[in-house]
Amino acid sequence: MSLARVHNFSISLDGFGTGAGQGPDAHFGHAGDRLHQWMFATQWWEAGGTAGVDDVFVQRHDPGIGAEIMGAGKFGHPGWHEDPDWKGAWGPNPPFHTPVFVLTHHTRPSIEMEGGTTFHFLDTSPAEALETARKAAGDQDVRIGGGPTVIREFLAARLIDHLHVVVVPVLLGRGVRLWDGLEGVEKDYKIEQTSSPSGVTHLSFTRA
């Protein structure tokens, strides 16, 4: 069976995976790009970037992925469902290049984008969404793309096989936390920690 994987999910020191006050021009709310600056500095993101440990981790984002599951909050700002022309925050050629299943209570017809990405909208449980995504992924894995609420729900349901969390040395104070309600979840995993010169810490959880 294919694996359910999370890659490059960044959180603050106080556990927030996104900031407060999300809007059309603030995809991560008041956090801005502070949780992802480590990624923007890598070769994976831009030619001439760093080739160190951060780049090694971020390069694992795409290989072997045949489908993605994301939450409504990653697909768009609060209220996106009221805009029939909203097609996500990534322009006409999103970076996924696979089927993407958006978990939302506001379903709509599938949207085919450039580059192989097609957004499908599901109002279902994590287990049922994963079953659907696995069928679309074939013999490849499924990436659980976020945001923090969706990853938390999949962790609570014991559905994630590999989790890569990047702890960024900033304090956000408000937003949406990743770890709330997950006491003891670490017992399911072998955990490795890798520190980076950029200041972030990579935590890799692999199902025991």
Rank of each mutant, 00 (worst) to 15 (best):
S2N: 15
F205P: 02
P92F: 12
V53F: 05
P148M: 12
A67Q: 09
I144Y: 04
L103V: 02
V200H: 02
F9R: 03
H61Y: 08
F57P: 01
S125F: 07
V167D: 02
S198I: 04
L13W: 00
A133K: 02
A136V: 11
A136C: 10
M1C: 13
K87T: 14
L122V: 00
E46R: 15
A129L: 04
Q140Y: 03
I160D: 09
D25M: 14
I191T: 13
I111G: 00
Q193I: 00
F101M: 06
G17F: 10
W80H: 11
R143K: 14
P84H: 07
G64D: 04
P84M: 07
D83S: 12
A127G: 08
V185L: 06
A208C: 08
G184T: 09
P197E: 04
A4R: 05
I69E: 01
G23N: 15
V185C: 10
G23F: 12
T132Q: 15
D188P: 00
L171M: 00
V100T: 08
G91K: 11
W38E: 01
Q140A: 11
R174V: 03
G49L: 04
P99T: 11
V58M: 14
P148K: 14
L122Q: 08
I144S: 04
A127D: 15
D139G: 09
A208D: 12
G21H: 14
R174P: 01
G116M: 09
E131R: 15
T132D: 03
A89W: 09
H120R: 10
W179G: 05
Q43G: 15
M1F: 13
P126R: 03
I11A: 07
G145Q: 11
W179P: 02
P95M: 12
L103E: 02
A133C: 01
I151F: 08
